[in-house]
Design a protein around this nucleic acid. Structure first.
Lengths: 340, 340
DNA sequence: TACATAGATGTAATCGATTACACGAAAGTA
DNA sequence: TACTTTCGTGTAATCGATTACATCTATGTA
């Protein structure tokens, strides 16, 4: 119903030009005070709203930033997004959400779409590092749109990232299991093409070696981040000649599955078997047999990513600052691994 | 680095006008086939990308839709958003996320910001129905921007909504508890100014009356959706002259708190006390003592909201179709309330 | 041959805001 | 009095794409 009011409407009403109106509204110093006041009052009276699209076209800045995640309905990614939104909202940015569902094709699609939509920056968690068809990434860089990776990163010169120290997370957790007296610690590993999972694995391995324990390939089971995968892994592990007495899982969901399967087999946790997960999903704390897990401070990660973006967005210099922020993982020790 | 290529660049290279280029790229029928092919080939070669902002300004459609939720880091809202994104992505829409943190002020702010950003529609879950300062809502309606409520709705003429039948959810759950043999069923209620919570309460009450049980005010405890609140509620309930033997909680988190407190007091669940929650949060299924809860099909709710939006967005008629979609709640009966 | 018609393309306005440059009036300076 | 500044506004181009209307050419028809 209500006609869209433009600066031309205001100008017409006051018998001045749109240029003057624009200047008055933008606090341009070379405008008479009385004119400014009149314009501002009239604009308010006419319920004028600036057309952000026109502004965006003119300035080349949309005030939108794009966020790409594998999926949004995971506590971790949702929390990161929350952090991003909260940090960027006060600066006038809107957050556009894209999901990849772990598909490199969708990832590229989303990158192109966001660039087409003229976003002022892209914050993302990579889906597949081996994605060679990185014309999409090159495109982003060529357009000089700030790109920031969080959690799942990828090595690209000049691109900043915010991650946690996954190696340390794996190391600390494994060390903790060793301290609890576990002798044979297995690892449920994630997609090794992603650095986060590789580093968790490497931290695990190093902790074993540093503490005089032997590392066995057969104790490392690749799993998807699903309950069922954890059950299957336990099934495999318990058939080994020397079954393990602890599991460090790179996924909370797999850890949960492992626990369910162990209980099914009447193996007592933590007395005879310890389990620890990764991500600190809400349910790990809520269980009666609460699950030890590594917190990744997703909210902080989101806020930090947003801050890194803000630092870069105004740098008109072509000199790219590559900032690598690494947050500290926090091990939450709970019942599933507390023998004492 | 890479210059932005516009249709003018293509036109110049081919010695034709931008109009022709535009027509060729848009499959306008009145263009020579050979010209079209040449333009398309050249555009590809020059790596031309349509500037969506220019298009948006010209057409008045941004291809963005706004989603406003209390917060994104809740499994329910994140899942709804996932549904919305998946349904709208194929239609070329991008999803902009806003959070209110249950603040009416933020809600109004977000509404204005989204309208300013020229979104093509707004899908939202209301924060506070008593929010009288609805200039923000009026503004949306006047601008003829499709508005759709999901889950937490509000009565506004001409505005569509997608909700679940909360009354039925409350009714079914209470009936189930009665069937299990519970005689005194308490209710942990949510903010009664929100219809969803009022309806859950009404369903609970009706189920009691329909089954010859008496409804007692003192059995209704208002709670926040938090673990701690559930504990406190149990503390109050057990001090009553006739303490209840079951709880229907309008929140899974409060239900969890209740269970923790009951266990603390060595009350056996479900033998001596049954508990049921609402929302089917992931953890309810994962607990060893899994929690009975009502599923709200958030993914479906999101997709459905998106579909309702799509139906309305192309209707140029000023006649507003008010569509009220009500999804069926699904009671998931689990250990916390299964005596048999 | 003369004229209507279809086909292909060019011209220019438009969406709404910003801004370099131009211009007239008032004020300051010598 | 004559000339330079300063101040406040107007003019018009610009961002990139779309599209109504105009124009021109080639073809069809009587």
């Amino acid at each position: 119903m209500s006609e869209k009011i433009t600066i031309y409407d205001i100008a017409e009403k006051l018998n001045i030009t749109a240029a003057t109106v624009s200047r008055a509204l933008n606090n341009n110093p070379k405008i008479k005070e009385s004119t400014r006041e009149l314009v501002i009052k009239t604009a308010a009276a006419m319920n004028y709203k600036q057309n952000k699209l026109a502004l965006a076209l003119k300035s080349g800045r949309s005030n939108n930033i794009g966020v790409i995640v594998p999926r949004i309905d995971s506590n971790f990614f949702a929390s990161v997004i929350r952090g991003i939104e909260e940090e960027l909202h006060p600066h006038g940015y809107q957050v556009i959400i894209c999901q990849t569902h772990e598909s490199p094709k969708r990832e590229n699609e989303n990158l192109y779409t966001l660039i087409d939509a003229q976003v002022d920056g892209i914050l993302m968690s990579v889906t597949d590092v081996t994605n060679e068809n990185d014309g999409a990434f090159r495109n982003v860089l060529e357009k000089n749109v700030p790109l920031i990776f969080f959690d799942r990163s990828k090595h690209i010169d000049g691109v900043s990232s915010v991650t946690i120290n996954d190696f340390k997370g794996g190391y600390l957790t494994t060390k903790h299991l060793i301290n609890e007296g576990c002798r044979c610690i297995a690892h449920l590993s994630g997609d090794q093409s992603l650095e986060i999972f590789k580093n968790r694995f490497l931290g695990y391995k190093q902790a074993l070696l540093d503490n005089g324990m032997i590392f066995k390939e057969e104790y490392v089971i690749p799993v998807k981040s699903m309950v069922e995968a954890g059950k299957e892994a336990v099934d495999i592990l318990l058939q080994l000649e020397t079954p393990p007495d602890a599991i460090f899982s790179s996924s909370d969901f797999a850890a949960l599955g492992a626990i369910q399967e162990l209980k099914e087999r009447n193996i007592s946790i933590p007395k005879d078997f310890c389990v620890a997960g990764f991500s600190n999903e809400p349910f790990t704390k809520f269980m009666e047999l609460s699950i030890t897990s590594v917190d990744q401070s997703p909210l902080e990660m989101g806020k930090m990513s947003a801050r890194v973006f803000l630092e870069q967005v105004d740098k008109t210099d072509t000199i790219k600052i590559e900032k690598k922020v690494v947050l500290a993982p926090e091990l939450h020790i709970r019942k599933s691994s507390s023998k004492n």
